[in-house]
Amino acid sequence: MKGVYISLFVFLVSFQAFNLANGQARLFWCVPRAGVAVAQLQANLDYACGQPDVDCGPIQPGGTCYEPNTVASHAAFAMNLYYQIHGKKSDCDFSGTGTFTNTDPSYGDCKYVKSIGGKL
């Protein structure tokens, strides 16, 4: 079984190196899974924004990501920022309510921080 994991690791590293060498770096954002309850999204938002290194200013009134003023939108921004700062796959788990997307969730003047695929 250990050999399977090693082979998979080598494949993934080789694939990522190929993508980067060909200018095809994959970008990832951390967002809530579809159907997550508002209460859990609020808990995720509170947790992420409660960290000293996460700047949730853009989702405060007057911020570039304040609108739409919904828990889901604000949680998505905060969860992604937390993940991008901490940078491990587990940092997007949020008790099983986070997931990855390679579709940029940015809109208008609201720009989501992004990573280059090596963090997964």
Rank of each mutant, 00 (worst) to 15 (best):
N44A: 14
H86N: 15
V31W: 03
F11G: 00
Y107H: 09
S90M: 12
A25V: 01
A37P: 10
G98P: 06
I116S: 11
D104S: 07
S7H: 13
N19P: 02
A48R: 14
A34Y: 03
C92Q: 08
D46H: 00
A17I: 05
T64A: 09
A43R: 01
A72S: 07
D109I: 08
E67T: 08
C92F: 06
A48S: 14
F18G: 13
A34H: 02
W29D: 00
V13Q: 01
T103S: 11
G117E: 11
G63P: 04
S115P: 06
V31E: 02
Q51I: 04
G98D: 07
H86C: 04
A39Y: 08
R26Q: 14
K2F: 15
Q51F: 02
Q16D: 06
G98Y: 03
K89G: 03
L45C: 10
Y82R: 06
D91K: 00
N69E: 14
Q42V: 03
D55L: 00
D55K: 03
T70W: 04
N44V: 03
F15S: 11
A25D: 00
G96H: 05
Y82A: 02
N44C: 11
C92R: 10
S7L: 15
S106T: 09
K114E: 07
K114S: 11
V113M: 07
P105D: 00
V113L: 04
G35M: 09
L8E: 01
G23A: 13
A21Q: 07
N102M: 15
C110F: 02
M79Q: 00
F9T: 02
F94Q: 03
Y47W: 12
D93R: 05
T103I: 11
R33Q: 03
E67V: 11
T99M: 11
D104L: 05
F9G: 04
N80R: 12
Y5N: 10
V54T: 08
T101S: 08
N19T: 12
C49W: 14
I85F: 04
A48T: 10
F28L: 13
S7R: 13
N44D: 15
Q60F: 06
P58I: 10
S14H: 09
F9H: 01
Y66L: 10
T70I: 04
I59C: 10
N69S: 08
A37D: 08
G108E: 12
F11V: 00
C49I: 12
G96I: 01
L81Q: 15
Q24T: 08
Q60S: 14
Y5V: 05
Q51K: 01
A34N: 03
T103N: 12
K119P: 06
N22S: 12
Y107E: 09
N69D: 14
Q40A: 15
F15L: 12
C92G: 06
F18E: 13
L120S: 07
G63N: 05
C56I: 13
G108F: 10
M1G: 14
Y82W: 11
V31S: 01
Y5F: 15
V113S: 09
G87A: 13
H74C: 05
C92H: 06
A43Q: 07
S106P: 02
A34W: 02
G62T: 02
V71S: 12
G96L: 01
F77S: 04
V38G: 06
A43C: 05
K2E: 15
Q16F: 11
A43T: 07
F94T: 01
I85Y: 00
M1S: 13
F77D: 05
K88R: 15
Y66Q: 08
I59G: 06
D46Q: 03
K114L: 02
V10N: 05
Q60G: 09
